[in-house]
């Protein structure tokens, strides 16, 4: 009776194990929820046009019910004295890079989630809370989130932030491409408010076309690089700039998708359970040797007596 139940247990666990290995090689890949939609939306950010008025920061906070100072206070340019990063209280920030020559303008760069086509956060999320949506946005389900913060580690742009200061029910926060607003046919809040139309909203395809057109129309104004066209397999948000993106603190990334890299490591570690089995075998071996040593010592002690 006892033996039979033991056999059953072994059978089911073997089945589960086989199932997991099967899943890990096939279905658990960082594919978006839908197949990437041809007409997914994006935003083209022309940093040569941005004047650093920071109205986008205000609009973002207002749209996401985050506490904010009155809009007039955003005229204060002393905030540019230090570099800022998006966090749980500000999902987008604008930084300023001072000019080299006296007669040039400073360069202002808005930072937010890039909404990757092959997002690392979606791949890293162990509970499947993150998803790449049909309209291009990368969003997450707060109810599913267990607060493991793997997405924060996985993101090549270090975007997801965590409400560390909250003791009760802290959430992951990041730019959600104004998912609720775009669902209603509205524009993302930052795109809508931008006075200079630094941010152009359109299908990713048309934005890339437009960006190439701008580069060919004004070869003196832009460097020949659309940041996000190929970086980490392409992003929905794209940038144009007058100088090398590395000087504007954009991470230098390859064209390989971020999940591709992390998954290769992750799946490599667990491939066919060989490495864990090997590890346990090694530990078992060490234990066995230790046990033998202890036994022989014991024998010696007995001998002495």
């Amino acid at each position: 009776m006892i033996n039979e139940s033991r056999r059953k247990f072994l059978k089911t666990s073997a089945l589960i194990g086989a199932g997991i290995t099967g899943l890990s090689t096939k279905s658990v890949k960082a594919e978006p929820k839908y197949v990437l939609d041809e007409n997914r939306m994006g935003v083209l950010i022309d940093t040569t046009v941005c004047i650093g008025c920071r109205k986008c920061e205000w609009a973002c906070k207002t749209a996401h019910d985050l506490p904010t100072q009155p809009i007039e206070s955003y005229d204060d340019r002393t905030v540019f004295e230090k570099m800022r990063r998006p966090d749980a209280k500000a999902l987008t920030v604008v930084n300023e890079y001072p000019p080299k020559e006296t007669d040039q303008f400073p360069i202002n760069v808005k930072v937010q989630c890039m909404h990757c086509d092959k997002p690392a956060c979606v791949s890293a999320c162990i509970v499947g809370a993150f998803s790449k949506e049909e309209n291009g946005s990368v969003i997450w389900d707060t109810d599913k989130c267990i607060g493991c913060r793997y997405c924060m580690v996985a993101c090549p742009f270090q975007i997801p932030a965590f409400e560390f200061e909250k003791a009760w029910h802290p959430d992951i926060r990041k730019c959600d491409f104004c998912f609720d607003r775009t669902k209603e046919g509205k524009l993302p809040a930052c795109v809508e408010i931008c006075p200079m139309e630094v941010l152009t909203y359109g299908t990713r395809k048309s934005l890339i076309e437009r960006a190439h057109q701008k580069i060919s129309l004004y070869p003196d104004r832009y460097i020949k690089h659309i940041y996000g066209e190929f970086e980490v397999g392409g992003t929905s948000w794209l940038y144009l700039a007058s100088k090398d993106f590395h000087e504007l603190q954009f991470p230098k990334l390859g064209t390989n998708t971020a999940p591709g890299v992390s998954e290769a490591i992750q799946h490599g570690i667990f491939a066919y359970f060989v490495p864990p089995v090997a590890l346990y075998a090694l530990l078992g071996g060490v234990m066995w040797i230790n046990k033998k040593k202890a036994e022989s010592n014991k024998n010696k002690e007995v001998h002495h007596e």
Binding site: V49, L187, V191, E192, C194, P195, M196, E197, T200, Y201, G202, S206, L207, R210, Q213
Partner: peptide
Amino acid sequence: TRKRADITKPDLKGAYHQ
């Protein structure tokens, strides 16, 4: 209107400010 099909030129608000 900012939400438009033709994005080859900025909208009116953008054009003024630029």
